[in-house]
Design a protein around this nucleic acid. Structure first.
Length: 286
DNA sequence: AATTCTAGCAACCGCGGAGCG
DNA sequence: CCGCTCCGCGGTTGCTAGAAT
């Protein structure tokens, strides 16, 4: 099935936005609010596609947006969040008030990546030059004859037998989770609903995780899973896990009673499971 | 001074998920 | 359940200012 284009491209402006276009968009959204991006260009009289309007508003025009001058604190947070979350820029940006995913992504790709990789040959000046040259020659080749365009990184991953998501997750796991423990303290709120009281991750120092608190990520999938898998009675949390290996032959559900306000150490495997994002607790050792 | 190269950033593109009829 | 639309995300591209040659 052919996907319909997000908008008709005929007669639309492309490239950099003018001050006048910005003004129109800003005025329109100030009056009518965000949303309905597809209809905005038509109603506001902009020769732009809705997607472009959305992007411009979210990354540039929105009033609470901070631009430039990323502080040392913000930089540290980006680095730590990236270690935990990978290239989930919107999640990372969500923890940096006033910063957009695009800005964080650009900052990472242009500044932090270099800082962190140092003078590694993989990203050396020479290799970048080679890359650029290659790009140029590809471009001219494509202009001369209509060869199929090079596969994007995503497409290249998809060409493998495993899904890109899984590949990425496993790379993350291998890279960072060795010998790690996740410590969780459970408690109940006033309505008796189990909540996570505090969390701490104890990681090997070489990954600089010692200073990282997962409580920095209240919306992370991990905690949702924790909460979804818990029920509570007067003085215990029942933590339900799905096992794939075990005396019952695998695939069954285990329930573990955890005294309230007791620290719980999740095994490395458990945390790996979360990172794999398959939303099951396997090989749990609490 | 002219040209080439590089880095930074804004914008675009394609895909996938959510929501709705 | 299915197909469609809309939105949001992450990867990529292309423009431009400043640095290097």
């Amino acid at each position: 099935m052919v996907r319909t284009p997000c908008c008709s491209k005929e007669g639309l402006n492309r490239g950099a936005w003018t001050a006048h276009e910005d003004e129109i968009l800003r005025d329109y959204i100030n009056i009518h609010g965000e949303g309905k991006w597809r209809t905005i260009p038509k109603e506001a009289g902009l020769k732009r596609c809705g997607k472009s309007c959305r992007l411009r508003w979210l990354n540039y025009l929105k009033p609470d947006i901070k631009r430039g001058n990323i502080s040392q604190d913000e930089e540290d947070l980006i680095i730590r969040l990236h270690k935990l979350l990978g290239n989930r820029w919107s999640l990372i940006a969500g923890r940096l008030p006033g910063r957009t995913d695009n800005e964080v992504k650009n900052y990472w790709n242009t500044t932090l990546k270099k800082k962190l990789t140092g003078d590694q040959p993989a990203e050396s000046k020479q290799s970048k030059i080679e890359k650029k040259k290659k790009k140029k020659s590809n471009k001219s080749t494509n202009n001369n004859n209509n060869k199929t365009p090079p596969l994007s990184a995503k497409s290249q991953l998809e060409a493998n037998t495993e899904t890109p998501h899984k590949l990425k997750a496993e790379a993350t796991t291998n890279e960072r989770v060795a010998d790690s423990k996740v410590q969780v303290v459970f408690k109940c709120n006033d309505n008796g609903v189990p909540i996570i009281k505090s969390r701490e991750v104890v990681y090997p120092m070489e990954y600089s995780f010692g200073e990282l608190l997962l409580s920095d990520f209240p919306d992370s999938d991990f905690w949702k899973i924790c909460q979804n898998n818990c029920t509570e009675d007067s003085d215990h949390i029942h933590m339900t896990s799905t096992t794939t290996t075990g005396p019952a032959g695998g695939g069954g559900a285990n329930s573990t009673r955890i005294p309230l306000a007791q620290p719980v150490l999740f095994s490395e495997d458990l945390f790996k499971d979360w990172i794999r994002d398959d939303h099951t607790f396997r090989n749990q050792s609490i």
